[in-house]
Structures are given as C-alpha cells and as structure tokens.
Amino acid sequence: MIATPLHSKRNRLPAVLEHASGDKRFKILEVHMKKHQFRHDALIEVLHKAQELFGYLEDDLLLFVSYKLKLPPSRVYGVATFYHFFNLKPQGEHTCVVCMGTACYVKGADKVIAAIQDQTKIRPGETTPDNKVSLLTARCIGACGIAPAVVYDGTVNPRATPESAVKQIKKWTGT
C-alpha cells in the first residue's frame, strides 16, 4: 500500500475554530482547560473531558485541543493513542465491556466473550454495523470477588454467564 504524492496542503485550523465557535461543547471544554490554566500536563485530563463531551476524539477535536494547549498536534495524537481508554472512533449506542482480568478469566470470561462474539459477529474493539453495540475488553476492573464481571453501559454485572450476556445483547439489539 503506497500513498501517492499530494501537492496541496492546507491549514485546517481556521475551519476547526470556526466550527468550534458554534458548538457549545467546545466552550465547555475550553472552560475546563482554563480551569487547568491551559497547562501542558493537563492534556490527559482535557482528553478525558473531551471524550466525556463528544463521546470520542475525532481529529478536529484533537486539533482544537492542541491549538488551545499550545502543543504540537503530534503530541496530542501520540497521547490519545497511547491510552486505551480513549476512543478515536465513535462507539455504538450501547457498550459491553467484558473484564478479562485473571480472576474473571479462570472463572470463564473467555466463554462469555466467545458467546457475545458469536451473537454479535464482532470482535473486541469493534462496533456492530447497525451501530447498536460496541464490544470491549477490560484488563481488570477490580471486581474479582464477583467474577466474571461484565459492564453493560457503565453498570457492573456480577457472575456473568454466556447465557446472561447473550440475553443482554439480545435486549439491546431487539432480536
């Protein structure tokens, strides 16, 4: 795969700033940055806030952050892609996070996730084509006492089974 030469390059920033001026969420984000005095070390905090406001971190949003914090865009992108918590693509309507920590794993989380994959036909990190469900895995949510744990839209579900997981997915997808 070889990309071909481009002869025009264009500064996207003015367009991004103009777009941002009409969107309230950018205002809120800027207030948040101001709270941190636009400090460079607040980048991760700012990205958390941005993801909370917009759901995911699209390029224009990252460009806005880099401009406001006076950081090179490559720094912002490098940080946003280092941490698995940040999504650069939109997520589905519902999220299903299967904990794959050791305790959950030895208690059958692998079977739970296999059942969900079978039902949704997507792999971890993907979203169903109808944009209903995103499937994610977590490294350990620290709920080992109730393993295996699955988080449905932010709510922890204890002692999950392949059946209970499929039931929840079906509820979301209406099948």
């Binding site: 030469p5 002869h7 720094r75 490098g78 892609t81």
Partner: peptide, 23 residues
C-alpha cells in the same frame, strides 16, 4: 511523534495525517 503503543506503535506526522498534508 510515536502514536499507539507496543507492537502497534508507529511514527506519525501531526495528527497521523499523510506527511504531505502535515502543516
């Protein structure tokens, strides 16, 4: 800069755009 991590880490220009577009 470096983007991503582990085996997926790679060198980027700006926001992972093609180098020719880097401002």
């Amino acid at each position: 800069n470096v983007a991503g991590r582990g085996g997926k880490a790679h060198i980027i220009s700006d926001l992972n755009m093609s180098w020719g577009q880097s401002y």
